[in-house]
């Protein structure tokens, strides 16, 4: 038997002398982040491949394949850019939304219900706030990875017209986070993930299709166009598109409104997430 247990009483004696200092609030969230990074290490390679393959396939099929028809038929629909250049930012923001939804669903179920990992964290000096904030920080990191790869692939396809395009990455990360907080907050109140399928089909899929991702919102019937304003994804798509096509600075107030809406959602969703995780853990 080795060190701390050599003699009776050694364990308690030592712990009086060598006290670990409880991590600060920021460090605590960092530890939660670190935990996720450990989990991710094994899945990293596969997930990187997926991050490359998915946008490549979509841009090939929709951007080039279908795009050849769109460009031939409606050459002026996209204000001088090709369909592929129009589509890429839409897909980027849409992918960020989907990644964020997944990352804020199953990990929350695992943390609170299935494996109760969040409960295990709460048995240490880590508090519910650090659990929630660390989880969101991890989602932000995942989003950064996915959107960076997406941006790289888009550049290869010639879909990034302006150096401002790099701003598409933070725009997409912000879009994802706008969904992650609220979704995490909702899943924290569930005992099963059953509602997930319903949310995906009733909310995520329609948002994905009708937020200016595949076609401009102004080709929707005029009556329902204003509804786009209610879609967080639309704000994200507009922002990412403005960045990648270099038009974001043409109308700075408009861009700021998009940013404000998304930041507001991140704030509201994030604080609801913190609140619900706290309620669940400290009952």
């Amino acid at each position: 038997m080795s060190a701390p247990f050599d003699e009776p009483g050694n364990a308690t004696r030592q712990s009086v002398l060598v006290r670990p200092v409880p991590p600060s609030a920021l460090a605590a969230a960092g530890r939660v982040f670190e935990h996720r990074a450990y989990q991710y290490r094994r899945a990293f390679r596969g997930s990187l491949v997926t991050s490359f393959v998915n946008p490549t396939l979509f841009l090939l099929a929709m951007g080039l394949g279908l795009g050849s028809y769109v460009n031939a038929r409606s050459p002026d629909a996209f204000h001088g850019v090709t369909y592929l250049q129009f589509l890429a930012p839409g897909l980027l923001a849409g992918a960020a939304m989907q990644v964020a939804i997944f990352e804020s669903t199953f990990p929350v179920m695992i943390g609170l219900v299935w494996r109760r990992l969040f409960h295990a964290m709460y048995a240490t000096p880590i508090g519910p706030r650090a659990v929630a904030v660390g989880t969101l920080a991890w989602i932000a990191f995942r989003l950064t990875l996915v959107t960076t790869v997406f941006m790289f692939v888009s550049t290869l396809f010639g879909a990034v017209v302006s150096p401002l395009g790099l701003l598409g990455i933070p725009a997409a990360v912000l879009t994802g986070l706008a969904f992650a907080g609220g979704m995490g907050a909702f899943m924290a109140t569930r005992r099963t993930p059953e509602a997930f399928n319903a949310i995906f089909r009733w909310v995520i899929t329609p948002l994905f299709l009708f937020s200016g991702t595949f076609f401009p919102v102004d080709s929707l019937p005029a009556a329902i166009q204003p509804i786009a304003w209610l879609s967080p994804l639309w704000h994200g798509v507009e922002l990412a598109r403005g960045a990648m096509l270099g038009t974001v600075l043409d109308d700075p107030p408009r861009a700021l409104v998009h940013v404000a809406v998304l930041v507001g959602l991140v704030g509201i969703g994030g604080s609801l997430f913190v609140r619900n995780v706290h309620r669940k853990l400290a009952a």
Partner: peptide, 28 residues
């Protein structure tokens, strides 16, 4: 404190040793 809850709350995606290391990190 050292807490052993009624249901195991181990991270089944990690290895045995990683579970210990990660948990220790939570204590600073």
């Amino acid at each position: 404190l050292g807490v052993v809850p009624q249901q195991d709350t181990l991270d089944e995606e990690l290895t045995v040793r990683e579970n210990l290391v990660i948990y220790g990190r939570y204590f600073g």
